[in-house]
Amino acid sequence: MMLKVPPPSLDSALDTELDPALFREGMSRVAGAVHVVTTDGPAGPAGFTATAVTPVTDTPPSLLVCVNSSGRSIKTLLQNGVFCVSTLGADDELVAETFAGRRDLNGPDRFTVGTWDRSKADQPRLKTNLVAFDCKVSDARLVATHHVIIGEIIAVTLGERRSPLIYQGRSYHRL
Rank of each mutant, 00 (worst) to 15 (best):
R72G: 07
A132V: 08
S119Q: 04
V65E: 06
T38W: 01
L126V: 06
G71E: 01
P6T: 09
D139L: 12
H173L: 12
V143M: 11
P7F: 12
K127W: 04
I153L: 02
T157V: 08
A46H: 02
D19K: 11
R125E: 07
R29P: 05
H147K: 07
A31F: 10
D134Y: 02
G26D: 09
L130P: 00
T157H: 07
L3K: 15
R162N: 11
F48K: 04
L175N: 11
T57E: 08
T98H: 00
R102T: 07
D139T: 11
R174W: 05
L10N: 12
E93L: 08
L77N: 03
A13G: 07
K4N: 12
V30G: 06
G89K: 01
C66W: 04
A155Q: 01
Q123P: 00
A100R: 01
G44P: 00
A90K: 10
A13L: 13
A13K: 13
L142T: 05
K127Y: 03
S69G: 15
V36D: 02
L78G: 00
K136C: 08
R141G: 08
L63K: 04
L88H: 03
S69T: 08
G44M: 01
A21N: 13
G169M: 12
A144M: 14
G101V: 02
R125G: 03
N68A: 14
L63R: 08
D104F: 05
S86V: 07
S138P: 01
L77F: 06
D19R: 10
I74M: 03
Y167W: 11
H35K: 05
E97S: 13
H35I: 09
F99H: 03
P108L: 06
P7M: 11
E25N: 15
S163W: 06
R103M: 07
S138L: 08
S62Q: 06
D109I: 03
K4I: 07
T157R: 06
T115D: 15
T54G: 12
V82M: 08
L105G: 00
